[in-house]
């Protein structure tokens, strides 16, 4: 077990639920941050924190698609190929990204820069075809733009993946007006969301 398990954020997460088993999913995200993905060690740590067996944590983690069982590239590119995006050319976007990043669907590129996956609907159908990089969204992406985005990621290696920035550079039609510019983005191929703000923990 590494030291992360004694972090304050862990205490806060555990404290926001009436039953500590509920903390399994948020803790799996934190553990995945520590270990890079949902490794056996990550699951073992979470099991210990929540009083479950490793088998129980594995059972939960493997039910969901976002707890990755294998190492993920710096940039996890998820291409929606569900019905609305398919109708708008999502398959071509996927093909363009696979080609440009030299990473087949479901795999990670040689240098570990890209992981590419096709995904089911990500709730961006009005901005189809849609792509997420580290779960930050770009809508209305055409194949050429998608290629450009891959090159940009490869050449620029942004530390923070910002949806607004990518949308401006490579996006098109959006599902709706995105509103204010966001300054928060993703540092890792994991959803950039901290559940342990000031809200209601310890109750």
């Amino acid at each position: 077990m590494t030291s992360w398990t004694t972090d304050e954020r862990v205490t806060r997460i555990l404290g926001s639920y009436p039953d500590k088993r509920s903390a399994v999913m948020p803790l799996l995200y934190v553990a995945s941050k520590e270990y890079g993905y949902t490794t056996s060690d990550a699951m073992r740590d979470v099991a210990q924190l929540t009083g479950l067996t490793g088998a129980q944590v594995q059972s939960v983690a493997s039910f969901y698609t976002m707890y990755k069982r294998h190492g993920v590239g710096t940039y996890l590119v998820s291409v929606c190929t569900s019905i609305s995006c398919m109708l708008r050319g999502g398959d071509d976007v996927l093909a363009a990204i696979e080609d440009e990043s030299d990473t087949p669907d479901g795999e990670t590129s040689d240098g570990g820069l890209f992981s590419v996956e096709h995904v089911e609907c990500i709730g961006a159908c009005g901005g189809a075809p849609a792509v997420q990089v580290n779960y930050e969204l770009v809508e209305g992406v055409e194949p050429d733009q998608a290629r450009a985005m891959c090159r940009w990621l490869r050449d620029g290696r942004p530390d923070v993946v910002l949806g607004d920035e990518m949308q401006e550079l490579f996006g098109g039609q959006r599902s709706f007006d995105w509103g204010p510019k966001e300054t928060e983005g993703a540092l890792l191929p994991l959803p950039a969301f901290e559940p342990y703000g000031t809200a209601g923990e310890g109750r």
Binding site: D19, M25, T65, M66, P195, A199
Partner: peptide
């Protein structure tokens, strides 16, 4: 008190009882 809980990637968690199971870890 309000807690915001992030799912893990599973459409079925939209079904209310699946959602509750998920929320229970």
């Amino acid at each position: 008190d309000v807690t915001v809980h992030l799912g893990g990637g599973a459409y079925i968690c939209g079904e209310e009882t699946a959602l509750l199971n998920s929320l229970e870890g």
